[in-house]
Measured scan of single mutants.
Amino acid sequence: NQASVVANQLIPINTALTLVMMRSEVVTPVGIPAKDIPRLVSMQVNRAVPLGTTLMPDMVKGYA
């Protein structure tokens, strides 16, 4: 199973992502692939993302 990107903490709306905010985990449904973590750094979330939430492409500005 492919690992997805999961929030390692509460990420407030419009926050630029950093490595410490994200972890990889095998979850259902599948979200953004963990291999894309380096690409996500500095991108902003367009909503508040609670701890443990799988990041989906529509949550990150400029990803999709």
Rank of each mutant, 00 (worst) to 15 (best):
P57A: 13
L55M: 12
N14E: 09
V49I: 14
Y63F: 11
P50S: 12
T15R: 06
N1H: 14
I13H: 09
M43H: 06
V5Q: 01
D36F: 05
G31K: 01
R39T: 10
Q2M: 11
A34G: 12
T15V: 08
P38N: 13
Q9T: 12
A64L: 15
D36T: 04
L17I: 11
S42F: 15
I32P: 01
V5A: 09
M56K: 07
A48P: 07
M59Q: 05
I11K: 01
L51D: 13
Q9C: 08
V41Y: 07
M22E: 01
N14K: 05
M22T: 02
I13D: 11
V26Q: 10
L51Y: 14
G52T: 03
M22K: 00
V27D: 02
A16H: 05
M22D: 01
A64G: 10
Q2L: 14
D36E: 10
L55T: 00
I32R: 01
P12L: 10
I13E: 14
S4R: 02
G31N: 01
A7Q: 00
V30C: 10
P38I: 09
I32S: 01
L10Y: 08
R39S: 11
I11M: 06
D58P: 08
M59E: 03
V49Y: 02
I11P: 01
T18A: 07
L51A: 13
P38C: 10
A16T: 07
D36G: 04
A48G: 06
T28E: 15
S4C: 04
L55S: 01
N46S: 13
T15G: 05
Q2Y: 15
L51P: 14
M59N: 05
T15K: 05
I37T: 09
L55F: 11
N1Q: 15
A3C: 15
M43K: 05
Q44S: 11
M43V: 04
P33H: 14
P29K: 06
T53N: 10
N1P: 15
T53L: 13
V26G: 05
S42P: 02
M59H: 11
Q9V: 11
M21R: 03
L55Q: 00
I37S: 04
G52Q: 04
R39W: 10
T53M: 14
L17V: 04
A7M: 08
V27R: 07
I13W: 09
V30N: 12
M43S: 08
R39H: 15
P33K: 04
L17K: 00
P38D: 08
A7E: 00
R23Y: 04
L19H: 06
L55K: 01
P38T: 09
N1F: 09
V27S: 06
M43C: 04
P29V: 08
G62P: 06
L55I: 11
Q2K: 04
D58A: 08
Q44L: 11
D58H: 13
L10Q: 10
V45E: 00
A64F: 05
A16W: 13
V27L: 07
S24E: 11
R23N: 04
T28Q: 09
I32V: 07
T18M: 06
T54Q: 03
V49D: 02
L51S: 12
M21F: 06
E25I: 04
P38H: 06
L40Y: 03
A48L: 11
K35N: 15
L17P: 02
A34E: 15
T53S: 15
A34W: 14
K35G: 14
V6M: 07
D58F: 13
